[in-house]
Simulated scan of single mutants.
Amino acid sequence: MEYQNLLIEDKNRIRYITINRESKLNALNQQTLSELHNAFMDAFGNKNIGGVIITGAGQKAFVAGADIAEFVNLDQNQGAELSRKAHINVFDLIGNGGKPVVAAINGYALGGGLELALASHIRIAANNAKMGLPEVTLGLIPGYGGTQRLTKLVGSGKALEMILTADMITADEAYRVGLVNYVVGSDELILKAEEILGKILQRAPLAIAAAIEAVNAAGTAQGFETEINAFGKCFATADTKEGIAAFLEKRKANFKGE
């Protein structure tokens, strides 16, 4: 399909998704969220795509938040439905996707923009990036998964500090508290994302999907059982047989995602 607010490129089994609303600091309006849903559904269903790198156009912003103008006339039920729809169609879709998603945070990641990065599996920040959840300054709270995913990454104390003060943190502080995996120079950002994703794409695709599922269940009542079941299911795959054979034969495995 044609995208108005996204730039899509597929190369070396990687889908590059760039949110292309630079004049609006790449804010997430409803059309952009709809396009993200379609782009990720297509990537996850495409056998030629092994993973995704998502970033924002320009140097100023990854995503500077939601498009607040769309919130003006919402009532309680409409607000809840807006949040629920975004969870299901975009943020949970990314977080629960069976292919790795790397967020390349190239500037401001605020509100829904930080929540988009939090839904991704790995986060890399440019050294000029700043991150925050300023929703309480609007009389709101994060509604696209921020209260849950940020807490899981940095703990309730730091999550509450960020959410209740609405203060931004630097890329270096984000790294220190475990919010991002790496901080690099702006010119190295996509290269670092490609380096990490390139390593992942050498591994067994079905095992990658199983690992994402199991890690997502960490801390829940079903966490250990999810791991046990996912581990067992691996033994039904040709990739597991290939991986074990390659190890014993001291050769490189040839995984096919089967």
Rank of each mutant, 00 (worst) to 15 (best):
Q30N: 12
L201D: 01
G98T: 00
E249K: 02
P100T: 05
I8A: 03
I88L: 03
H121S: 02
G223C: 03
I124D: 00
I196E: 03
A207D: 10
N20R: 11
K11G: 10
A221H: 11
E22K: 07
P205M: 05
V177A: 06
A221N: 08
I141G: 13
G51L: 00
A218I: 07
G98Y: 01
E9M: 14
K256G: 03
A66S: 15
F71N: 14
T151R: 09
M131T: 01
K24Q: 14
E35I: 08
A204C: 10
V90G: 05
I49Y: 01
I212L: 10
L110N: 09
E188L: 00
E258D: 08
R15H: 10
L82N: 10
V154H: 09
N20V: 10
K24C: 06
L191H: 12
M1S: 13
Y175R: 15
I141T: 15
F91W: 02
L189K: 01
G51H: 01
I49T: 02
L138W: 14
N181S: 12
G146M: 04
K192L: 00
T170Q: 07
N48S: 13
G257H: 04
A103Q: 02
N12H: 12
I14P: 03
A174G: 06
A109R: 04
G223K: 04
G111P: 07
M1L: 13
Q30T: 15
A193Y: 01
A57I: 05
K11P: 07
D167P: 08
V101M: 05
I49V: 07
I94D: 02
Y3E: 09
Q31V: 13
T237G: 07
G111Y: 03
K252Q: 15
I94E: 06
E188T: 05
H121C: 04
A211P: 04
L7E: 13
I19P: 00
I141P: 07
Y175W: 12
P205K: 06
I88D: 03
A39N: 05
N96C: 10
N48R: 09
N127M: 09
E81K: 14
T147M: 08
K11V: 09
L191W: 10
A66H: 08
D42N: 04
T137N: 13
G145E: 01
N26C: 07
T151E: 09
N89Q: 12
L197A: 06
E213W: 05
T237L: 02
Q59L: 14
E35A: 13
E135Q: 13
A61V: 06
G145I: 02
A69G: 14
D92Q: 08
Y108I: 05
G232N: 15
R84K: 07
S34P: 04
G219M: 11
N96S: 11
A193P: 03
T226K: 07
R176Y: 08
D187E: 15
I169G: 03
L179E: 05
N29C: 08
T147S: 11
G107M: 05
I68F: 15
E35G: 08
V177T: 04
D187I: 12
A246T: 06
Q76H: 07
F255H: 05
A209C: 03
A238E: 10
L110S: 14
K252V: 13
I49N: 02
V52P: 00
I200A: 12
I94Q: 07
N48K: 13
L138S: 12
G111I: 04
G113E: 00
L7H: 15
A193F: 02
N96D: 06
V63Y: 04
I49D: 04
K85T: 03
E242I: 03
A57W: 02
G97N: 09
